[in-house]
Amino acid sequence: MRVVVDLSRCEGYAQCAFLAPDAFRLHGEEALMYDPEPDDALRDRVLRAAAACPVQAILVDRLEGRRIPVEAARS
């Protein structure tokens, strides 16, 4: 699955790192590092983390499973 965190909004409260530690980690006191394509097995946890983020900084892909392929112009 795909995730992006708006780190300019994130306040480093670490709720996400608590709920989905394999996808979100704190680096030092409050700098958030995350896996932008966490394993699908983590889906429920990541969704819970996104819902729990107090500043709603975590965006999860809403197109899962019905992705339209992107074509190369010259193919």
């Binding site: 896996d35 932008p36 809403r62 112009a73």
Partner: peptide
């Protein structure tokens, strides 16, 4: 930690676009 090709942006919705890529 994360592979270089593992930062594809999530989509908020389908954009139904024609993609002209690589040029």
């Amino acid at each position: 930690w994360v592979p270089a090709d593992g930062t594809t942006l999530p989509r908020r919705r389908d954009i139904d676009a024609e993609w002209l890529l690589g040029v």
